[in-house]
Every structure is written in structure tokens, then in C-alpha cells.
Design a protein around this nucleic acid. Structure first.
Lengths: 274, 274
DNA sequence: CGGGCCGTTGACTAGATTCAAACGCGGTGG
DNA sequence: CCACCGCGTTTGAATCTAGTCAACGGCCCG
């Protein structure tokens, strides 16, 4: 069926991204998402300023909200959560970060980290000191471009999460985040293999605004329907496609025929003010 | 009281930001948030590539999700909403954009707009074509830096919205968004002046995942408590401080004494790999 | 003057949180 | 090797919040 083909293509892309990010030092690829037009010089220079950290135990705090910005970080192995403490003292999870993904990007704006970063499992990260990175970006256009893409991609991801959260019920929200995790954890779309979640039910729920109990109940429901099989943190995706479609309402619909529209329907008053 | 002083300072900053963004062409200041270390050359060059568009009527679609990326946009006057259409065909509001604010930033990542942008009122925008902007950023370090800050700031804003949405009830969510709007619309913190919201109840609610009816009921409740006074889109903030505190649980708590911590508690394995 | 959109209000319902208690599992120490 | 302890998870029951459906009123614009 047509829908199946489209879905397969989607998942293949996911897998490529993740397998590419198996690179032990994502800092050197800078997120690599799309085009990697890196001249060798830029990559070499990145290598010089990148700091490779050795693994730290679960629960380690990598940076705290409010601390002055020093560097952006990427996960080499393991998993990290970024959290915000709200006025009532509760800790709310902003995002999870898996191998190959960057965090701490929101600190560039005003020179202070907006979130705290905590490791969920034994985790190794690498970091790119801001000062050096920005200097380098001045010299290498490709690097600058890729850095912009990285930041822009983070905005897009946040927007997606936000849209997923707003106006969808618990079931869709959890399906969405589980599907996301599966895709990002280098897990094939076809049924079968098992994988170990790095976070608790409470954390998983908190990341989409659900109570731990609700999350547990939904796990049960998904199991009943044959979508997944879960024992503790071990989860098996029995029907990843169904799970994906369940969470799909939260994803943006593809704009099909938007190409035809020209971009100049805004009247230009003063285009090249001398 | 101490709390009052702190709040006053907060609001004063808000006002300064907005009054500064009264600049008819925010593109030339590039968001201006923090430090503006713009050499005159950069500003002059920005002026050359910036396009100033004349006002368009409400409901105009500025760009569609899926269209190829051409430029980033900023609001000069009026208001814009960015929306996503989800799989069930429903339109979900991602954000509102008021004068001085940029939108379309998430399109840089993969060269396609992730959202559609629609004007809420008669609105004038200006735009910075991506190609020219990136070329310029290569030549002017200050501009590059400011562009990064702009993108990073957008990430932070999204994270804040996200945290506000997750795990807070309708009352807090609406108070949060109202307080945000008041602050961004150049509206003084002290009680009094009236301002005209550019969006409907349904849009306001949708932006924080609420039904239009719920939004209306909350307006009523806030009015009963003497926080606001609303007739249609005209809203008067009778007790902005109380409203701010009501929505505050959604804001990140200030990390008070985070300065003491050093940033090098991560063991460095390979800092300058030759 | 008419019509449509926006806003309001009420009643009902479904869904998610909360409180409470029990269970399983992995770890540690005896 | 086994007993014990603690955390994370599960399950149940009650509560309540917010969504939905429906109808009405009002405002603005044509």
C-alpha cells in the first residue's frame, strides 16, 4: 500500500540519521542533520577545540540553570535530560537528549544556561566551548551555516513538541514521545527488537505533562492492544507503525502542494534603500 | 517590599525592550535583545539586504508550511500567528509574533518553513533573505553573533512555552500567556491602561491548548477576582502583578547561587587531539 | 436591516490527576 | 545464599478539571 511505502521511507531516513550519529564524537559533525559541506580545515579546527569527556555516572549534573554559558554539549553515549525548576519547586522535564544530539543551545542567547542538564544513565558527552566555536564559525562559512542549521533545527524540534502537547490527549502524547524515542534510538521500524529506556515512567510522563500513574496505565493499554510489550524499562515495539500513526496527529501534516506559491506576494516598499 | 522591587525592575526591563523595538525596522537591529556590538558597516549592509513590506490586511498568509525557505521575517507593526496543521486537519497555534519579533527561524534547518504564518491584524513585516543574510554574517562577526543569539533566544522562548504547557492547569496557562502578551505589548506593569488583543479567544486558548469556552470562562474568573477587565478584545490589566504571579509557576525559577559552581567537573579525556 | 463571526453561558461527559496501597525487582549487607 | 530494604511500577477508587455539545446574545460589517 501507498501509506506503507511512505512510512518505510520515513523510517529509513530515521535510521540513517541515527546510524550516522554513531560517530563517537558528534561535536565533529555538528549535528550533521542535512548537508555536510565541511571543508577539511573546518573539521580539523573543530577537532582541536572539541573536548571529549569520559563517562559519568547516572544523576550527574552537567550544568545548572543560571550558570554562565561556557560551551554547547552533545551526547556521545548514554542519555541526558534537561530540566527546569518552576516557581513551585517542581522539576519539569524539557527534553531528553540521546547520542548524537546537542543540548545547552538556549544558553547562547543571554550567556546563561536556561536549563539544568542531568545524566539519566552512564553518559559520555563532548563539548564545544562557545568562545572558540564562534571564532571558528567566523572563519569557516560552512561551519557557520551548519551551526545555524543546528540551532534552527532545535527550534523546529521544540515547536513540534509544543504542538504535540497542546490539544492532544494523554494517549496521543505518549504515543508521540515513544515513537520519537524509538526513531531516535536507532531502532528499526519493523516489529521485534527490544530496547532499554533510559528514563523512569515518571520522567517519561513528565516530559509530556502526564502523571506517572497515567503513563503506567497507558503502557498497559498499549500492551493490551498489541502495540508494545513492556517489562520495567525494557520495551519491545510490536507494532511500531500503529504506534506512529497513533502519535501522528501530533506531528505536522506534510504540506503537499505548497511549492506552487510564490514568495513575493508581499508588496515591497523599500527593497534597497540607498 | 523586596518582592515588589524585584518585580518592578523586571517590568522596567520589559518596557525598555519594547520601546527599543519601536524601531520601525527590527530587521536592522536583528532582535537587539542583549548586546548590540554592531559595527556601522554591518548595520549598513543589513539595511541594504532588508526588505520593508507595506501593511497587509488581516488573514494574509505570509508563508506556508512546506514552502522552500527564502527569508526570515520580523513584525514591524500588527501581529502574526504561526500555525501548524496536524494530521487530523486541525490548525494549532505555535506562537504569536508582535512588533519587533522574528518568525520563520525554524525554516533554516532544512530549507523549508515548518509553519504557516498568518496576519492577525493589519500588519507590516520586514524580511531578510537567507542567502544574503548568511553571506553577510560571514563578513561581520558581530552580526553572526547576534544572529546566533536570535536563534538561541527562540529556542529558549519555545522551551519556556513548553514548560508552561506541561503539567499546569488551564488557569496558570492562560495567566502565563496573558502576562507574556502584556509584557511584550509595551504595556506598563502598573494597573490601568487598556490594550486591544489582536487575537480571538479561540486563538488565545489554542496557543496554550485550551478550548475557546474554557478561555472565556477563565476570563470571567479573572475578572471576578479583579485581575483584569475585559470587554471583547479590549482588556485592562487591573492587577498585573497578581496575574504575573499566577502564571509564574510556569516560568523557570531563577537559579540564585549557581555562579559558584565551576564548569570543569567533567573529566577531560582528549582536549586538544593533535 | 440582515448575516456571520465571536463571545458567553449552561449542562453533561470523559478523561486525567490524586490519594492510597500493594507489588516486583534490584541492590546491599548479613 | 538469603533476608531485607528502597525505589519504581502497578492497580484501584474517588475527585475534579477541562472538553464537548448546544443554545443564546451581541457586535461589527456589509
Amino acid at each position: 500500500m501507498n501509506a506503507n511505502l511512505a512510512d518505510d521511507a520515513l523510517y529509513r531516513i530515521d535510521m540513517m540519521q541515527v546510524s550516522a550519529s554513531d560517530d563517537p564524537s558528534p561535536c565533529l559533525g555538528l549535528g550533521l542533520a542535512a548537508a555536510p559541506p565541511f571543508d577539511a580545515g573546518a573539521r580539523e579546527a573543530l577537532k582541536r577545540i572539541a573536548r571529549q569527556h569520559e563517562p559519568v555516572p547516572p544523576g550527574s549534573r552537567l550544568h545548572e540553570a543560571g550558570e554562565p554559558f561556557t560551551a554547547i554539549h552533545a551526547v556521545r553515549s548514554g542519555a541526558v535530560k534537561t530540566v527546569r525548576r518552576d516557581a513551585s519547586g517542581e522539576e519539569r522535564i524539557v527534553a531528553f537528549h540521546l547520542p548524537g544530539e546537542f543540548f545547552g543551545l538556549s544558553a547562547i542567547a543571554d550567556g546563561h544556561y536556561a536549563t539544568s542538564a542531568v545524566t539519566l544513565t552512564t553518559t559520555a558527552v563532548c563539548s564545544l566551548p562557545g568562545q572558540h566555536l564562534f571564532r571558528l564559525a567566523c572563519e569557516h562559512a560552512g561551519l557557520q551555516r551548519q551551526l545555524m542549521r543546528l540551532l534552527s533545527g532545535a527550534i523546529r524540534t521544540e515547536q513540534g513538541q509544543y504542538a504535540a502537547l497542546a490539544g492532544h490527549n494523554a494517549e496521543v502524547r505518549l504515543a508521540f514521545v515513544l515513537d520519537q524515542l524509538r526513531a531516535r534510538m536507532n531502532h528499526p521500524a519493523h516489529a521485534g527488537a527490544t530496547l532499554r529506556l533510559p528514563m523512569t515512567r515518571a520522567e517519561l510522563g513528565s516530559s509530556v505533562g502526564l502523571a506517572a500513574e497515567t503513563t503506567s496505565r497507558l503502557f498497559h493499554r498499549f500492551t493490551d492492544r498489541g502495540l508494545i510489550e513492556a517489562r520495567g524499562r525494557r520495551i519491545t515495539f510490536l507494532d511500531p507503525l500503529a504506534l506512529h500513526h497513533l502519535g501522528a496527529p501530533a506531528s505536522a501534516a506534510e504540506a503537499s502542494a505548497a511549492a506552487a506559491r510564490a514568495a513575493d506576494h508581499l508588496p515591497v516598499v523599500d527593497s534597497t534603500c540607498s
